[in-house]
Design a protein around this nucleic acid. Structure first.
Lengths: 192, 192
DNA sequence: ATCTGTAAATTGAACGTTCATTCGGTTGCA
DNA sequence: TGCAACCGAATGAACGTTCAATTTACAGAT
């Protein structure tokens, strides 16, 4: 029973992501989500009190996905430089392989929704905090230069996000060579 | 006459930017733009055939502003490293000093509008192309490593955008020290 | 096994609001 | 006198949300 519950919500999530990628937040009415998910509008309102709430829940759903994809794969026993490359690469790879989520998160972060989610971000670990902690660990172990961690995180995350967009716009292929070029730029900039 | 024409349109642009920053694209109805700009709705439709067109025109307006702010100030006789630091710093400074435009551009780039504007970007020089050309110049003069220019541009632009957001969210102050840290990271990563 | 009562899940037509756009009319200037 | 700028009430379509009705799930009684 609990399984079906989750299944239906995940089904709604996935179709909503696809529609929002294609049409944007406000080009995606609830009626369209319902039809695409093959449920009635009322069913969506059974699970979510409003469209706004649906989008906020979808946001935390996406955050969890990307976080676990990136960080579950990182073995803390590996040399830090190796971990560093892996985090950056998996960050990019996730975005490129999950364009629905990537597009949704970018829209979300640059919309008025973003403010509504800031409370939640401080509770549930958002990927940015994970990155911050990961970089702090690198500073403590003398792998990284000791500069303002938010500046470093900007270079780290910002590069990866923009690189992923370049891949999606067809400017750059997502192959080993280009990933390594990106990693090298950032690593050279921040290594101790 | 041409002056007044421009004045009124610029007035509409500026109020639209402020409203969109506060409420987002779709939280900003034409009626609100009209009231805030102190003109009638009909007047806006006298100058712009639709809301979509208004936003597209606003986009090219913003692009011109940021481009001229950054690149008009760059003296090509200066040492390349100096130019490099200036471009990056002015990029960030513009975003932080013009949060309306920054917010609008970010929303725009991550919305379905973005596709509609791609034709225009190829005609009018968009800031990304300017950055690309600037980086290519650095490679030709052996100041920068010769790697894929789009990868380098991702690191360059992405860092600056995310850094600016960190400043706006209050995580980092926009002072000389933090700007220099950012410039150093990127410069170390891309210099020859 | 079959029946029954209840609560949860599901449905979609209907409602009320909001919003982009229209258009017939007015003003001001050349 | 004519034309461009300007006005804003009216229009009609789209959308988020509601809710009364229907179906499904299933525990306990027979």
């Amino acid at each position: 029973m609990n399984v079906q519950f989750t299944d239906k919500i995940e089904c709604i999530f996935k179709h909503t992501l696809a529609l929002i990628k294609e049409n944007g937040f406000h080009g995606t009415p609830m009626s369209m989500i319902a039809k695409s998910s093959d449920v009635a509008i009322g069913t969506i309102y059974h699970y979510f009190p409003s469209k706004e709430n649906l989008i906020l829940e979808l946001f935390t759903y996406c955050k969890k996905k990307i976080n676990s994809y990136i960080f579950d794969a990182i073995d803390p026993e590996l040399p830090y430089q190796k971990q560093f490359a892996m985090v950056l690469e998996r960050f990019c790879k996730f975005q490129v392989d999950n364009t629905d989520i990537f597009s949704f998160l970018e829209q979300f972060h640059n919309s008025p929704f973003n403010e509504l989610a800031h409370d939640k971000q401080k509770v549930g670990g958002c990927d940015e905090n994970n990155v911050i902690n990961f970089l702090l660990k690198g500073m403590e172990t003398n792998s990284l230069r000791k500069i303002d961690v938010h500046v470093m995180a900007s270079a780290f995350i910002g590069s990866a996000v923009t690189f992923s967009k370049s891949v999606l716009y067809g400017k750059v292929p997502l192959d080993r060579r280009h990933l390594e070029e990106l990693v090298e730029i950032i690593w050279n900039g921040v290594k101790q």
